[in-house]
């Protein structure tokens, strides 16, 4: 009988919590209203991140920076949601629908994984505007595709690596072997070979699809880069998101150099590895998101494909730290040749 009493006690406790929850409700709604900023814009942005979400120090963060800038400047209201590793296709669709049903417009999907769900949901909600980053396969009046010429930016940092290397051997660490990351590789190799046709480029990928952990595993990045440095390379370029931290560490420990990706990592990486970051390939997702949102704010909602390439400074290279100051002229010459179409950078290795 004592046991029965104990069960009853547990049940009672649960019931009490339940009623406590009920009374919580009203109070919380009150604070929610108090939190709302003084809005000057009636645009409600729904932001659907890829796996990792805000805080991944890479791709998603760059998109988040663009959103933050727009929110601050225009006083837009924004809500965010992130994908979970190994989620169903229906979960991505449902994320977009939940945003649409709750009145968010536009809805920005960060990452190519959303391509199929954007195609489906944009059809169900023809009056809502959507944008997708890194994909241009969806054609609809209410969908804007924001894509980047990653190979062009990678070409320039490849050229920088070839100009700076002392061993004529450089490396590339890709996060996950997808067509997207292969674009980085292709441009990098082409840029290096444009400077020195005999240069040796070591290439490795940390994981294979559907294992996307290669974008978030610094230990794997470190091991891969270490192997390249041991093998005679002296500069390694990473396109591996969060795993890049490991590449910087390996470069720092072995007194070699590394090249960052997406944002100017000289400014965002750990200060202890700052002095090994030769340059960074800039992929200005933040600019794309901000420009899209400012068009929306102006009432001129974009649709169709917008390519962010060297010509519009959608991609590029960073000069923070001053390591590439002496070769800026050569790099800018390559840049101009690409813009003028004299050099066509390959998009696949």
């Amino acid at each position: 009988m004592r046991k029965t009493a104990r069960f009853a006690a547990v049940a009672m406790a649960a019931a009490l919590t339940l009623s406590a929850c009920g009374s919580d409700d009203g109070a919380d709604e009150g604070t929610d209203n108090g939190d709302a900023p003084a809005a000057t814009s009636d645009v409600k942005v729904g932001m659907a991140y890829d796996v990792g979400g805000r805080g991944d120090q890479s791709f998603n963060d760059s998109a988040a920076a663009g959103l933050d800038q727009a929110v601050e400047e225009f006083g837009m209201e924004a809500q965010e949601s992130e994908a979970e590793d190994g989620e169903a296709e229906s979960a991505r669709e449902e994320r977009l629908r939940t945003f649409a049903d709750a009145g968010y417009d536009p809805i920005i999907a960060v990452g190519f994984a959303y391509a199929a769900s954007i195609a489906k949901v944009s059809e169900e909600y023809p009056d809502v505007n959507f944008a997708i980053i890194d994909d241009s396969s969806v054609e609809a009046d209410n969908v804007a595709s924001l894509v980047f010429a990653e190979e062009q930016g990678s070409f320039l940092v490849g050229a920088a690596a070839a100009l700076k290397t002392e061993t004529d051997q450089i490396g590339f660490v890709g996060g996950v072997e997808t067509p997207l990351i292969q674009k980085f590789e292709a441009g990098y190799v082409a840029g290096a070979e444009a400077v020195n046709p005999d240069i040796e480029v070591d290439v490795t990928y940390l994981t294979q699809v559907p294992d996307f952990s290669g974008f978030a595993d610094p230990a794997k990045g470190k091991t891969a880069a270490q192997g390249m440095f041991d093998n005679g390379a002296d500069i390694v370029y990473h396109a591996a998101g969060g795993s890049g931290g490991g590449v910087f560490e390996a470069a720092s420990e072995s007194d070699n150099l590394a090249i960052g990706v997406d944002s100017d990592q000289y400014n965002t990486a750990d200060p202890s590895v700052q002095d090994v970051i030769l340059t960074s390939m800039l992929k200005n997702v933040n600019v794309a998101v901000y420009e899209y949102l400012s068009d929306v704010e102006a009432g001129d909602v974009p649709s169709g494909v917008t390519t962010y390439d060297l010509a519009v400074d959608g991609v590029g290279y960073s000069t923070s730290g001053g390591f590439v100051d002496d070769i800026v002229d050569q790099l800018d010459e390559f840049k101009q040749q690409i813009i003028d179409g004299e050099i066509t950078v390959p998009t696949a290795p």
Binding site: F112, A115, S137, L180
Partner: peptide, 22 residues
């Protein structure tokens, strides 16, 4: 299994224009 499937997927994969998915 992950490695094997990824390897064979790259061999047989088709890719839609403009898509980064295989």
């Amino acid at each position: 299994a992950t490695g094997l499937v990824a390897y064979f997927l790259r061999r047989v994969a088709v890719r839609e224009e403009g898509s980064n998915d295989i």
